[in-house]
Design a protein around this nucleic acid. Structure first.
Length: 490
RNA sequence: GGUGCCAUGGCCAAGUGGUAAGGCAAUGGUCUGCAAAACCAUGUAUCCCCGGUUCAAAUCCGGGUGGCACCUCCA
C-alpha cells in the first residue's frame, strides 16, 4: 500500500531505496529546537521541510510516527534566563509557546509526539545507568562521561577519526578529550534533578537518544536534522544508543542544508543578522516561505534574500491565478471531445493534468525532489492559462481542466502549498506587502477611486497620472471586464 | 590539520549515462483608452579545467582549480 521511495542517507552518502523496519510504517525522529529564543528562518527551513516530507509520506500511504523534541534544559537557556532574571524552565516554556505559535502561522501539522527533556528525566537516567553498567560510561565528581574509546565504530556517521579531532573542550574530569558529558554535576544557580550520581542535569546528546528510544523504540527508520548536527550531536547519539540498546539506532540519517545570507555571510547572533520567523511572516504570506524552501534541493545550502522571496511570491501568485482560471471553467461534455474540438492547447492541459500525479510522485519519490515537483506545477499552470485564453474555454473547458485541478489539491495535501483560497491569498499579499512597505491601504483605495472617476469622465491624462502615482507605491492597477482590481507588485 | 559537500545560460536553480526542468531578468508581440495580469516568440549554455571508463558522461572514476560547511554554541 505504501509507495516506495528513494532517500539519501548521510550514513552511507548514497541514495537508497527506503526499507522500513515494519511494513508500511515509518518511525521518524527530528531534532527540534533549543527553546531559548524565537524561531528564526533557519529553524523554519527544517520545520517546513520535515512537515512537507511527513505530509507527502502520509499522502502516499505511510503510517508516519513523527517525533520532534524540545530541548528545554540547556546551557543557552540557563544563560538567557540568568540575563533576564527568569526561571530557566519558565523561559523555555514561554518559548515553546512561541514555537507553537510560529508553527501554526507557518501551517505546520503537529508532530505525533513532542517530548521535552524536562519531562524525560527517567528515560535519560535509565539510559545513562545502562551505559555505565555496560562499561561505556564512567562517573567522576558527580558527572558522567561517555567513554568514546569503548565504541569502536565511533565516527562512522560523520567520517571523523577520534585522533584527528581538534579538542577545544578541555573540561576537567574526562579521561579523553573526545569523551562527552552524559550527566553534568549541578553548579550553583542551575536547575538540577536528583540522580544516582548526584544532583545535576543531562548532557546535550543523551536526551535525544533517550527520547527517541522512549517514543519510537531502540531502532528508528529515519533520524533527521540540520547538517550542522551531524557532528558531534548525531555521532554521539549513535554511540549512546548503539551501546545502550545493543541495537542499530537510525537506519537512515537525513540532513537538510543550512540557510546562508545572500551576502554570503552566515546567519548568527554575532553578525546581528538573525531574522525571526515572525518578522519574515509580517512581510510575506507563510506559503511564500514554504515555496521558497521547497523550490530548492533540501540538502543544499540556501541563500536567503528579499529578492528570492519576492520571486517565490510571484510564482505562488501564478499558481493561485491559474487555479482560479481553471476553477471558473464550466462545461458538461466529455473532456476528450472538448479537447478534440478545441485544439492543441486543450489537449496539452488534458494530457498534463492526467499525467500529473505520476510525474509528481516520480519527482518526490526521488529523495523528495520538491523543486522538480514544483516545476511540474508551474508548467501545468502555464498550460491552463494558455488554454484559458481561448474564447470558449470558460464555457466548455471545465472537463478539460478537471484533472489539472486535482494537481493543486495534490500540492496542498502532500506539500502544504495552495491551502488558501485565491481571495485569502491576495488579501494576505496586500496586507503583508503594504505593511512591509509602510503604505496605508486606505490611501491606495482613495487613489483607485479617484482614478475611477477620472476614467468615467474619459479624463485619460488624470487617470494615467494616478496610475503612475500608484506604480510608485508598487501598486498595479488592473482594469478588467468585471471591474478594477489592484495588486501589489511582487 | 581532519571530515564532508558543492561548481549547470545575465541571475537563482532541477537533473536517477543516452545529447540540458522550472523561475527571475531582458527584447519583440497578442490583449488594453494607456497599462497590468496572462499568453506567444527570442538564449548556438566550453554543464569549472585536464585526463580516463563507455557505443554514449552534466551524470561514473582519477587529478587539478575555486567556493562552502563541520571538527567550538548553532537548525
Amino acid at each position: 500500500m505504501a509507495a516506495p521511495f528513494k532517500i539519501y542517507n548521510t550514513r552511507t552518502r548514497k541514495l537508497e531505496d527506503f526499507e522500513p523496519i515494519e511494513a508500511g510504517k515509518i518511525r521518524l525522529y527530528a531534532c527540534g529546537n533549543t527553546v531559548y529564543d524565537h524561531c528564526h528562518i533557519g529553524h523554519a527551513r527544517g520545520m517546513i521541510l520535515f512537515d512537507s516530507f511527513v505530509r507527502y509520506l502520509r499522502h502516499r500511504g505511510w503510517d508516519v510516527d513523527f517525533v520532534r523534541n524540545f530541548t528545554d534544559v540547556d546551557d543557552k537557556i540557563i544563560n538567557r534566563a540568568n540575563e533576564l532574571g527568569e526561571d530557566p524552565l519558565a523561559l523555555s516554556a514561554r518559548f515553546i509557546d512561541e514555537y507553537h505559535a510560529d508553527a501554526t502561522a507557518m501551517g505546520l501539522e503537529t508532530p505525533t509526539q513532542e517530548p521535552k527533556v524536562s519531562e524525560s528525566m527517567d528515560d535519560i537516567q535509565g539510559m545513562i545507568a545502562s551505559l555505565i553498567e555496560k562499561g561505556n560510561a564512567y562517573q567522576n565528581e558527580g558527572s558522567v562521561w561517555f567513554d568514546v574509546g569503548s565504541f569502536s565504530e565511533y565516527g562512522s556517521l560523520s567520517g571523523q577519526k577520534v585522533d584527528e579531532l581538534r579538542s577545544a573542550d578541555e573540561a576537567s574530569g574526562k579521561r579523553s578529550p573526545a569523551d562527552f558529558a552524559l550527566w553534568k554535576a549541578v553548579k550553583p544557580g542551575e536547575p538540577a534533578w536528583p540522580s544516582p550520581w548526584g544532583e545535576g542535569r543531562p548532557g546535550w546528546h543523551i536526551e535525544c537518544s533517550a527520547m527517541a528510544k522512549a517514543t519510537l523504540g531502540d531502532t528508528i527508520d529515519i533520524h533527521g536534522g540540520g547538517l550542522d548536527l551531524v557532528f558531534p550531536h548525531h555521532e554521539n547519539e549513535v554511540a549512546q544508543s548503539v551501546c545502550g540498546n545493543k541495537a542499530d539506532y537510525a537506519r537512515v540519517w537525513m540532513h537538510h542544508g543550512l540557510l546562508t545570507m545572500a551576502s554570503g555571510q552566515k546567519m548568527g547572533k554575532s553578525f546581528g543578522n538573525v531574522i525571526n520567523v515572525k518578522v519574515a511572516l509580517e512581510a510575506f504570506p507563510a506559503e511564500t516561505l514554504r515555496l521558497y524552501y521547497l523550490q530548492n534541493q533540501y540538502r543544499s545550502p540556501l541563500p536567503w534574500g528579499d529578492e528570492a522571496l519576492s520571486e517565490a511570491l510571484g510564482m505562488l501568485s501564478r499558481l493561485y491565478e491559474a487555479r482560479e482560471v481553471a476553477e471558473a471553467m464550466k462545461g458538461e461534455e466529455p473532456a476528450e471531445n472538448v479537447a478534440k474540438s478545441m485544439g492543441k492547447d486543450a489537449q496539452t492541459v488534458l494530457d498534463l493534468g492526467e499525467s500529473f500525479s505520476e510525474r509528481f510522485y516520480a519527482a518526490m519519490d526521488q529523495d523528495f525532489n520538491t523543486a522538480l515537483a514544483i516545476a511540474h506545477l508551474m508548467e501545468l499552470s502555464r498550460a491552463i492559462n494558455r488554454f484559458g485564453n481561448l474564447k470558449k474555454a470558460n464555457k466548455r473547458g471545465g472537463p478539460v481542466v478537471a484533472a489539472a485541478l486535482k494537481a493543486f489539491s495534490l500540492a496542498a495535501d502532500s506539500m502544504g502549498l495552495m491551502r488558501m483560497t485565491t481571495e485569502e491569498f491576495h488579501a494576505q499579499v496586500k496586507e503583508k506587502r503594504l505593511a512591509a512597505m509602510g503604505i496605508d491601504p486606505a490611501d491606495v483605495e482613495k487613489l483607485i477611486e479617484d482614478r475611477g472617476t477620472a476614467r468615467a469622465e474619459k479624463n485619460w491624462d488624470r487617470a494615467d497620472e494616478i496610475r503612475k502615482e500608484l506604480e510608485a507605491k508598487s501598486i498595479m492597477v488592473m482594469d478588467q471586464a468585471d471591474g478594477v482590481q489592484w495588486r501589489v507588485k511582487l
